[in-house]
Amino acid sequence: MIQWDNILIDAGRAAIGIPAAAYAMSALGLNLQFGYTGLLNFGHVAFMLVGAYGTAITVDLGGSLWLGIPVGIALAALLGLLLGFPTLRLRTDYLAIVTIAAGEILRLIVRSSGAEPLTNGVFGIQAFADEFFDLNPIVDGRYGIGRFRFDERTLWVLIAAWALVALGTWIIWKLTRSPWGRVIRSIREDEDAARSLGKNVFWYKLQSLMIGGAYGALAGIILAVDQQNVSADFFIPLLTFYAYTIVILGGPGTVFGPILGSILFWFLFELFDEFLFDAVAAGWFGDVIETTDVGAIRFAAVGVGLMLLMAFRPQGIFGKREEVLLDV
């Protein structure tokens, strides 16, 4: 039995849920790098990890959460500097290679025994965000209609997360409509031309990578605070490509693309997941797909989605067709 009503309600909850907000934030940063500057950061997850761990470790060492969050963001910007420095003078591919490797390497370092005193190895760090939840002004209860409800804790995280996304979007809006934004767009179009007009292309790319990285960090922090948990094995390369799919879905190089993309992505993701689960349970696929396979198939579907979007609709679902025709 396919329970469409439940599926649609769950998909709707996912569309505005905490992961949707966090990935909108993550995609805002990636969009600045990929959509506006033309940088290929295949290790966005590294920035998410650094943000989350930077925050958790700061609190673990006795600092305040309100110190930890800026520390996490600053560390991510620093990571952008470190990764960008050897690669941003070279062809785009080198940044992609170095960042995708950095994502995995950081995860392995964080979970290694050598880093245990700081990161607690594979066990991760828990319960570091009490200061945030202590501020929750919402009275206990469940808010919403029917099955479409959130408890006071989730609601509090949701409000904070989406407020941050709104603030982040405003900053991107301001930046990309400024002369600074014009320079990074010109780098996306043709960095030699920008250089020939006296623009310090390397430095702009570095700034874009660092700022985008800071957004990634904030996304990691939102997820970590919500879970009150960071663990290395959460930060797998796949997270980067969720963000790519979201950016392209919403339209690269547009201000609201990441938000729309994230909402749409999580709606479709949940819809597909639950539909497949119900269909498998109903025996549609016999032995070929079992319930344990649903996870793998859903990730494969993200891969296919990313390929198809990039090949056939690189301007995103809402993008203008003529922009693509100019794509060189």
Binding site: L40, F241, Y244, I297, V302, M307, M310, A311, P314
Partner: peptide, 28 residues
């Protein structure tokens, strides 16, 4: 894709999509 004149960056993103797809089909 080459015939359609797909750019380098788009090709790289497509290759990573293919990687996700193949890897998880093998996992399945």
């Amino acid at each position: 894709l080459r015939r359609r004149g797909t750019g380098l960056i788009a090709m790289l993103v497509i290759s990573i999509g293919l990687s996700l797809f193949l890897r998880h089909v093998i996992l399945w």
